[in-house]
């Protein structure tokens, strides 16, 4: 069984791309292939035009990666850990020290000199981010970056991602939490069972996953709700004093005129859009979480 199957995806420069999918859907495998940890059995991955499989070193020099469940050499301090990784980029000692100092300040670990074995989950994540930014990468991959963080940590991380986006970096991050993706992404992709099922802006994905282009209109009136016979109505559910109408377009004006003509006073007339979360849960989890 393939963890990822015929996945085709492209992310534009400067995008903050949220990769959304339930646990086990293939998010980590996809990122693993993009950062050169896993060799795809078929197909190719490119980062800024560089083939990751054929030219892994060139790809690694322009990417940064924050994995889920990151670990560091426990006996070394944050600075020592980063110093070790910096050597692979051929940085001079002075340049490496300056970059490490800057990054540790950036992620809020400046002045922390204890070995990383005593780090909390949040500190480890922040150090992981510093590690991912060590080479000032053009593209940053983050696998479930806010997983297990406290609310303050989550907010800090969101701000950092927005800040990186502001600096023109391309951020590709995965999550199984829709709210997380919704908060910081400019575009999203939804993966399920190893296949991309939707890709685009939040609205585009919602519409695509919804599966139809019908507009749902909620009508509430004083007294009994009359039957509506308007062109454009596909279906309608009538209740005592209300109706939910599905139409091919937004026909609230026609509904209003028809009810006025029938001397029915309108209390509420609005378009109800299904949220991305509703669509996501229904599509990916089959509505089980509703």
């Amino acid at each position: 069984m393939n963890a990822v199957d015929a996945l085709s995806l492209d992310v534009g420069k400067g995008e903050v791309f949220g990769f959304l999918g339930p646990n086990g859907s293939g998010k980590t495998t996809t990122i693993g292939m993009l950062v050169g940890l896993i060799e795809p059995t078929a197909g190719r991955c490119f980062v800024n035009g560089v083939d990751v499989t054929r030219n892994p070193l060139a790809a690694k020099k322009i990417t940064g990666y924050l994995p889920d469940g990151i670990g560091f050499y426990p006996g070394l301090t944050a600075r020592q850990n980063l110093k070790y990784f910096s050597r692979f980029y051929g940085m001079s000692d002075a340049a490496a020290e300056a970059r490490i100092k800057e990054l540790l300040e950036y992620v809020g670990l400046g002045g922390v000199e204890k070995p990383t074995e005593g780090y909390s989950r949040g500190m480890r994540q922040r150090l992981g981010l510093a590690q991912a930014l060590l080479n000032d990468p053009e593209v940053i991959f983050m696998d479930e970056p806010t997983n297990g963080l406290d609310p303050q940590g989550v907010i800090t991380f969101r701000n950092i991602i927005k800040d990186l986006a502001g600096k023109g970096k391309t951020v590709f991050f995965s999550s199984h939490v829709l709210e997380e993706v919704h908060q910081v992404s400019t575009t999203i992709g939804v993966i399920s069972k190893g296949k991309i099922i939707a890709r685009g802006t939040t609205d585009e994905v919602r519409r695509k996953m919804q599966g139809d282009d019908l507009t749902t209109i909620v009508v509430r009136v004083n007294g009994a709700m009359p039957q509506l016979a308007l062109p454009g109505i596909v279906s309608a559910e009538y209740h005592d004093g209300s109706a939910i109408v599905k139409a091919k377009a937004d026909i609230r004006d026609q509904i209003s005129e028809e009810l006025f003509r029938q001397n029915v006073r309108v209390r509420e007339l609005r378009v109800r859009e299904r949220t991305l979360e509703e669509v996501f849960l229904e599509t990916v989890y089959g509505g089980a979480a509703q």
């Binding site: 020099k61 990784f85 992981g128």
Partner: peptide, 9 residues
């Protein structure tokens, strides 16, 4: 997995 994402074979 961290080490291998840096430029080293």
């Amino acid at each position: 997995k961290i080490l291998l994402t840096h430029p080293v074979f």
